[in-house]
């Protein structure tokens, strides 16, 4: 499913003293199967943008198009769109509520009015996709670890068979191994299931190792939209916005400043390792 966000504005409380332009002329497009990171300071408009993507909020100006069709147009099936564009909010495990894991994952597809067998098949596939073991299917979701709970919550969205999946801070509060598990899951959904994945994150190190393209929001505006490597080449601009480059990129640029002839447009540990060793002829 291709997405076009065309000159989208969103103004909260228009005409009052509390008027705030949360989105200001935001334009970009996303092809089917892309892997994108969305960054920006708190309050920069990321969450407002994300809630526009499945029609939870409507633009006050401009339009959003899926496969060329304006989702604000009369008669557009917004309910079907919400099945196709899955939103996983921060701390999605707070939304778990059923008696067991399997029932919880069935909740979404049940509301689509599908047949019992189809619902159960979808729940089974979704739980398998997020790596939950069979013996955990019938335990209470509240007896799982933090990382497992979060994966069950993501399975609940996957069972809707989304074509686009937006993960808002999917790693917040998880231990380093748990972070890696969630990001490996995002990789898998992107590469094996060809789902368009958009990750909202404050961790530049995580994004550097995973996504292919980064959108940067600042003060309601989309200020950068480029391949990951290109975005992280703008250290000064990012830092001025209260953001950062990956730690290894910062190290390379420090080394360059100190006079070592290294490239400073590299973003992963593996790349930095090879580059520094190359300079020393190792």
């Amino acid at each position: 499913m291709s997405i076009i966000v065309n000159h989208v504005d969103h103004i909260y409380n228009p005409g009052t003293v509390f008027e705030k332009k949360a989105l200001n002329d935001v334009t970009f497009s996303v092809e089917n199967g892309e892997y994108i990171g969305l960054v920006g300071r708190t309050g920069s408009g990321k969450s407002t943008l994300v809630t526009h993507l499945n029609g939870l909020m409507k633009p006050t100006g401009g339009g959003i198009y899926y496969d060329g069709v304006d989702i604000s147009s009369d008669g557009y099936d917004i309910k079907a769109l919400r099945g196709k564009v899955g939103l996983v909010f921060q701390y999605p495990e707070h939304q778990l509520f059923e008696e067991d894991v399997f029932a919880d994952v069935c909740f979404g597809p049940k509301n689509l009015g599908l047949k019992e067998t189809e619902i159960e098949l979808r729940a089974y596939e979704a739980l398998k996709a997020v790596g939950i073991k069979d013996e955990q299917f019938y335990v209470s979701p509240f007896d799982l670890s933090g990382g497992e709970k979060r994966r069950v919550a993501i399975a609940g969205v996957l069972a809707m068979k989304p074509e686009v999946l937006v993960l808002d801070e999917p790693c917040a509060g998880l231990d380093p191994a748990g972070r890696e598990e969630i990001l490996a899951l995002a990789d898998h959904l992107h590469s094996s299931l060809n789902i368009t994945v958009i990750i909202v994150s404050h961790s530049m190190d995580d994004l550097a190792e995973h996504v292919e393209r980064i959108l940067v929001m600042n003060d309601g505006m989309l200020v950068m939209d480029a391949p990951t490597r290109v975005v992280f080449g703008h250290r000064a601009e990012l830092e001025a916005m209260g953001l950062a480059v990956p730690e290894v990129t910062a190290i390379l640029s420090d080394l360059k400043k100190a006079g070592l002839p290294v490239r400073d447009d590299l973003i992963t540990i593996e790349e930095a390792r090879s580059e520094i060793l190359r300079v020393f002829g190792k």
Partner: peptide
């Protein structure tokens, strides 16, 4: 640390890799 599901800072990780690489 990895057995405890933890890791080391990125800088420490890179330094470790460079040492292994002969620096």
């Amino acid at each position: 640390l990895e057995e405890c599901r933890l890791t080391v800072p990125q800088v420490t990780k890179l330094a470790y890799e460079l040492r292994k690489g002969g620096l």
